[in-house]
Design a protein around this nucleic acid. Structure first.
Length: 411
RNA sequence: GCCGGGGUAGGGUAGCGGUCAUCCUGUAGCCCUGUGGAGGCUACGAUCCGAGUUCGAUUCUCGGUCCCGGCCCCA
């Protein structure tokens, strides 16, 4: 009987793993260069953390369990809530703005499909303590920079929930949620019948439909016509101005509603090219969560990047280091081991571990795509040198250890 | 939770009620005890699981499971 991977999980083979690590390191570098610090939170948390944020309904999509002390726990389904919890628990006194990022695996009990797994990796950023136009702009620009660094082509759409909330202000919050959901999905027929059902005013209906049908970059004046010059628009305008300065390309979409209610103002999403039904690679916005977890009235802005979806369309390939195989004979093997120790300070070195004969060691070098073979044989040791063979050209020369090091570590 | 398409050695495949289940590739070893990529030989290795139909099931039926895509959901 063989044991298989749990459903919705993946094994990452060497080539894939090295690609993932490579892209990961590129994205980490970008975040660090923007002044963000990495944090790690626990793989599992109290179930409450997530039901508090997303409602009891999420339990169905969680890998939750009772621990041996009878506590309700769950593997984390996302990282914004844990990071906010961490902030409330121990980071409240740090100077603002507080700039954090994370890159961890998350777990959701869902039906797997293209770009959706039960264990998946999320890269994300949280900027805590401000909601000025500059902070919104920086977060969007950082998301854009990270995706760009990973070579991802996608559509960036930016919206602002204050606008739609202004239009819907006369309605109760439950109805607002329903409407936002339909707006987000662009289900206009369903929206129309819902508005009919709740007997919404003509003004509301026409304002709403005018708003969500606006597209493109220069629509802000029209938005002002619809909702008036509310302060949020002024601030939003500054954010966009800053984004232009950052050189970020985007379009506006006031139909972005982003699921839950804690998003307050700016929201944005990025859709990757070349993905299936699950093509959103990045989503974020400004939100209010800290109070919910027992902290102060502190605003934040953040985003999450679906790393697995990035890898699906990312074409970056890391440059592999030169590989070297040491070929030895039984009588020279100990010398070869000593040499391996030395060479491993410079390049990845393979040495025979299977007591194979000379020829088979060479075949092995060929099979693993070695760039160099260093022969440690009697003839070489007699004259205190080594044979370096270039596996591409087949050429070989007799060199001292220092000369070998010089040659193989040159690139 | 729902819908569709799938599941034959590690990877890729053929067979589709009836001899020992096909071929390619891979891995290990040998031919070949100091020179790789070719060739030959040998070994390893599979019908997803369970029930049913049948004299007989890899093949047909049902259920499960897993994979792929989609729906729902998407924090």
């Amino acid at each position: 009987m063989t044991v298989n991977r749990p459903r919705g999980t993946r094994d990452f083979l060497p080539a894939n793993t090295s690609r993932r690590r490579y892209v990961e390191s590129i994205m980490r570098d970008v975040a660090r260069n923007w002044g963000y610090s990495e944090v790690i939170t626990p793989t599992f948390e109290h179930l409450d953390l997530f039901t508090l944020k997303s409602g009891e309904g999420v339990v169905g999509e969680l890998y939750n369990f009772m621990d041996k002390g009878g506590r309700a726990m769950t593997l984390r389904p996302e990282l914004t809530a844990p990071v906010m919890r961490m902030y409330v628990n121990e980071l409240q006194a740090l100077p603002k703005p507080l700039k954090l990022f994370y890159f961890e695996n998350c777990f959701r009990y869902e039906r797997p499909q293209k770009g959706r797994f039960r264990e998946f990796w999320q890269f994300g950023v949280e900027l805590i303590g401000t909601k000025k136009p500059d902070s919104d702009a920086e977060v969007i620009a950082l998301a854009n920079a990270m995706l760009k660094a990973a070579g991802i082509k996608g559509d960036l759409k930016i919206g602002n929930l204050a606008v739609i909330r202004t239009i819907l202000q006369e309605l109760d919050s439950e109805t607002v949620s329903k409407i936002m959901r339909l707006v987000d999905k662009k289900e206009y027929e369903g929206l129309e019948s819902l508005l009919e059902e709740i007997d919404a005013s003509e003004a509301l209906k026409s304002n709403l439909f005018r708003l969500i049908k606006l597209e493109g970059k220069g629509i802000l004046p029209k938005v002002k016509e619809i909702v008036g010059n509310i302060p949020e628009i002024e601030s939003f305008e500054k954010t966009l101005e800053l984004l232009d300065a950052y050189g970020v390309e985007y379009s506006l979409d006031f139909g972005i509603a982003r699921g839950l209610d804690y998003y307050t103002g700016m929201v944005f999403e990025v859709y990757g090219e070349g993905l299936g039904a699950q093509k959103q690679v990045c989503g974020g916005g400004s939100y209010q969560l800290i109070q919910l977890f027992g902290g102060g009235d502190v605003p934040s802005t953040g985003f999450g990047i679906g790393f697995d979806r990035i890898m699906e369309i990312c074409e970056l390939v890391p440059e592999e280091p030169k590989k070297l195989v040491l070929v030895s004979k039984p009588v020279t093997h100990l010398e070869a081991v000593k040499l391996a120790n030395k060479l491993r300070e410079y390049v990845p070195v393979h040495i025979d571990l299977m007591e194979r004969n000379f020829k088979t060691q060479l075949t092995f070098a060929n099979n693993i795509g070695a760039d160099y073979v260093v022969i440690v044989g009697e003839k070489e040791l007699e004259v205190g040198k080594l044979t370096l063979k270039d596996m591409k050209s087949g050429e070989q020369e007799l060199l001292t250890v220092e000369e070998v090091i010089g040659k193989v570590s040159r690139q």
